[in-house]
Design a protein around this nucleic acid. Structure first.
Length: 498
RNA sequence: GCGCUCAUAGCUCAAUUGGAUAGAGUGCCUGACUACGGAUCAGGAGGUUAUGGGUUCGACUCCUAUUGGGCGCGCCA
């Protein structure tokens, strides 16, 4: 059956290659042939898949590791939420993407550094201080109004309460600096904690403030010295339109302060100077206008802007009770990552976001997500893993420990389908890494789980025939290894029991 | 108004340099061995890929116009 399909397929493939030939695209011919072959997942030679099982079991989680990244130094910056409130669902998406991508790229041989940029220097920290101050005075019974552009989240009230618990009304008169610093550190600490719970750990928390010692002035000087600035309307502008931008931007405001982009330029300059060959920024769609500016600025300071890569994530729209829930931190109505984890669990959330291309705009019905969380395909994959564990466990109880085999006699067509799928794993990993599309891996997970479940239902594993049992257990052990690895890469657990 | 971006089965989404009959899940319908875990399996129905043109041997994919969402648009970050 499989062979039959392949045969007709390759005949069609042949015609289409002939057509290419007529167009004299000889170069494409070879890749065409190769692609056609790979895409069809040709049956492995018997000898190959015997050794594949043994290879996978011998290598364990190292199976699928490749060297395509060639040790290239990559910096992935993601989440980078302002420490002015807790993380919301949009950060959950960026986080799931960035972390999965990083893990996959590491597996493909890239030298990856995961970084979180902490905006602790800008005006929003002042707003944070003011917001805390307002809540603080409010809690002390003073007449006070929270600024309209302040942060309205519940967590701000908690920060204020903490300060009162610790030192009463000691900061009633002059507490702004304390509110700022305490709030920043408190929120940052919580934010780290929530991310750890979400199974994301960064290699570096880069503080914006460290830029202020040197890099910032140097960046400004460099742009000026290179002749990319001019004065107008009392402000200093820089000529981003000479590169990729549609118009020039203000660099130094008429009040003498830098605009928000200046520290960012300095930060990226810093990243370049730390020797990264690829800089990946995972940004929300609301920052897409940013790319051209930043790339232009990189050119002005002599950096290769093509090394700066942006992955833009489309917004997640959240609906609850049939109404859209806005995710602004200012409004304080955001659906918190923390709440989401508590209600739904980390696995479904990580899988859900990892499974979707970054470019897809998605509507998330929260009621549905909470109520019907069992519909998440993550359970399907986890169940496959748990089932394998269960069979292996039962086998062990019966004293059966799979041992290495050179020649397999009891593996049928379904088994060979599974093995060909397993053999594609390294290529899937490479594709995910080089195209920055971790969601491709969830497709693989789904396919592997599906083929396993089908095989499971059709076969008996613990049989009277010891040789047969042994071979089948070897096979599912190999599946387990790959399934486990793939799930771990996207931050999802692979439970032994469910 | 200008720019960017998105639109695929009832719903949520795949199809990633333009390639084979557009695939999964969910929902709906019909079935499955007392089952090594039924959170599973086997099968069925469900599509003018938003719409109209164009390029190509070939278009979900590229170009163009239109419609409808989202986001952004010089001294906020």
């Amino acid at each position: 059956m499989i062979k039959q399909q392949q045969k007709t397929a390759s005949i069609r493939g042949f015609f289409f290659l002939l057509l290419l030939l007529f167009k004299s695209k000889i170069t494409h011919l070879c890749t065409g042939i190769i692609q056609t072959m790979f895409n069809n997942r040709p049956e492995l030679e018997k000898d190959d898949f015997y050794s594949l099982i043994n290879t996978i079991i011998a290598k364990g989680r190292d199976y699928g590791n490749t060297t395509i990244g060639n040790g290239q130094k990559v910096n992935i910056e993601f989440v980078s939420a302002n420490p002015t409130g807790y993380l919301h669902i949009g950060h959950a998406r960026g986080g799931a993407y960035g972390d999965a991508l990083a893990n996959i790229m590491i597996k493909s041989g890239f030298n990856v550094h995961k970084e979180f940029y902490v905006n602790d220097g800008g005006n929003q920290i002042n707003k944070l201080g003011k917001s805390i101050e307002a809540r603080y005075l409010e809690l002390l019974g003073e007449e006070n109004v929270l600024p309209e552009d302040g942060y309205h989240g519940k967590e701000i009230i908690q920060v204020a309460q903490n300060i009162i618990d610790a030192s009463g009304d000691a900061y009633k008169e002059d507490g702004f600096e304390h509110f700022k610093e305490y709030g920043l550190e408190f929120l940052l600490d919580r934010l780290k904690g929530h991310l750890v719970e979400y199974r994301i750990e960064f290699d570096e928390w880069f503080r914006e403030r460290t830029i202020y010692q040197g890099d910032l002035q140097e960046t400004v000087k460099q742009i000026k010295d290179n002749g990319f600035t001019y004065e107008s309307e009392g402000a200093t502008w820089f000529k981003t339109s000479e590169f990729f931008d549609e118009k020039d931007r203000v660099m130094i405001k008429s009040d003498g302060g830098y605009t928000y982009i200046v520290p960012d330029i300095a930060y990226h300059k810093n990243k370049f100077e730390r020797g990264y060959e690829v800089l990946i920024d995972v940004l929300g769609a609301d920052h897409h206008g940013y790319m051209d500016r930043l790339r232009s600025a990189m050119e002005m300071i002599g950096k290769d802007s093509t090394k700066l890569e942006f992955q833009i994530l489309q917004m997640v729209r959240v609906y609850q009770d049939g109404k859209e829930v806005k995710m602004s931190k200012r409004s304080g109505k955001a659906i918190g990552l923390k709440d989401l984890i508590e209600e739904v669990g980390v696995d479904p959330i990580r899988y859900f976001f990892a499974a979707r291309a970054l470019s897809s705009q998605m509507d998330l019905d929260l009621d549905l997500a909470l109520r019907k969380s069992n519909e998440n395909p993550v359970y399907y994959a986890q169940y496959a893993h748990a089932r394998i564990c269960s069979v292996l466990r039962l086998g062990k109880e019966q004293g059966i420990e799979p041992t290495k085999v050179e020649v397999y006699d009891y593996l049928n067509e379904k088994a060979s389908g599974l093995l060909t799928l397993l053999s594609t794993y390294p290529r899937v990993i490479d594709e995910c890494a080089t195209k920055r599309i971790p969601h491709k891996l969830t497709n693989f997970i789904q396919e592997l789980s599906s083929e396993f479940h089908s095989y499971y239902n059709a076969e008996k594993f613990l049989t009277e025939n010891k040789t047969e049992t042994n071979e089948k257990l070897r096979l599912i052990k190999a599946i387990k290894i790959v399934l486990n690895d793939a799930l771990k890469l996207i931050g999802v657990s692979a439970p032994e029991k469910m």
